[in-house]
Design a protein around this nucleic acid. Structure first.
Lengths: 200, 200
DNA sequence: ATTATCTATAGATCTATAGATAATGC
DNA sequence: ATTATCTATAGATCTATAGATAATGC
């Protein structure tokens, strides 16, 4: 063909974006045929763009993780800590996994993938941890927070969202989200009873 | 054949136990042929015991969830709160998912399964929540804890274990487990700085 | 005589590859 | 002329079923 200069690049990006959504919606076991069909292509084309499905998994994880700290920082700037937490632990996030947190959707599956995939996952989670470290360090009268402390807070957020997603009863699921907000605030604030978040 | 009276029952149990381990080790997508082979049988026998793979998924989740609150209560009685948390967030638990917490291994996958499977999962998680409610209610000077509060604490435990499992670097993974212990203690105690668990 | 097990297979997937087709920059 | 796309297929899975085989209680 000798297609337009950017054609290849655009097609590749379309495949990655579609995979990033479908992996989160249906799991990493979703077939290449389905991914390619939803990207408007046939399976045969896949290997022009990627050397294996595992390479696509790494790309899709990278891309879907890339926007997460940006979204978090935006929510923190526009609102406050509690509201930022409420965005993560919202019914909307629970009900739209395809556009949501890759960790909540895929962490146990990623843990069973080859080491290079796990490495890509954790490397691209790092900026999210950085934002959370900053947030925890801003606690009133607290020592500097560590990366691991940020991981524990993030574990609460992702784990609680997973439990809300697994819960068939809507009201119970909503209650879990709400309790997750209070728990996250207790970790993020110094305050044991929590409630009000600090200014920044 | 007209086999021994208990033969059928024992074979069925062997299949469930093998599936309960393999699902946690390799994900629910693991094939029936592999499960049956590890149970010492061939795949043709499967449908004498279960009406579908999904029925086995429900049985395996039920069985693997059944022992969890027993283990937790035993750890709480034999040691104390901090040590019980340290059993859950231990390198041993991280490295042996096949005998470990089904929530940490499978929650996002379960969330994508049919409603009856999600229902079975949450119903059999209930006794674990009960133990955690009791534990949280015992906090010094605290109101009665709710089921949802227990879910948030459990979300931290499971989510943090998942992150530790996804982390390729051993030292970083260990640090995440340790931070998870401190975070869980902050939720379980009233004390913001935490450290020492209460007597009970 | 009863029934759990086996082998064999259907039909639908899965990842990956080969080679023909078609689209457009030079 | 170049190259992304297509169709077609290989070979290995997957869940589920059919029918033969074999083991043992009555």
């Amino acid at each position: 063909m000798r297609y337009a200069r950017k054609h290849n690049e655009q097609t590749r990006e379309k495949i990655v974006a579609t995979a990033a959504r479908l992996f989160r919606e249906q799991g990493i076991a979703v077939g290449l045929a389905k991914i390619m069909a939803e990207a408007g292509l046939t399976v045969g084309t896949f290997y022009t763009h990627f050397k294996s499905k595992e390479a696509l998994v790494r790309e899709a994880l990278r891309e879907s993780l890339l926007v997460r700290p940006e979204l978090l920082e935006k929510a923190l700037r526009a609102r406050d800590l509690e509201q930022a937490i409420r965005v993560y632990l919202s019914p909307e996030h629970r009900d739209a996994p395809g556009a949501g947190c890759p960790t909540a959707a895929l962490a146990p599956e990623v843990a069973r993938h080859p080491r290079p995939t796990r490495h890509t996952f954790m490397v691209n989670l790092e900026p999210t941890f950085d934002v959370l470290v900053e947030l925890l360090t801003a606690r009133p009268g607290k020592h500097d927070a560590t990366r691991a402390e940020a991981a524990a807070l993030f574990g609460l957020l992702a784990g609680t969202l997973q439990l809300a997603r697994a819960t068939p009863d809507r009201a119970q699921s909503d209650a879990i989200l709400e309790a997750g907000v209070r728990g996250a605030l207790r970790l993020a604030n110094g305050d044991p009873h929590s409630g009000a978040p600090p200014g920044t």
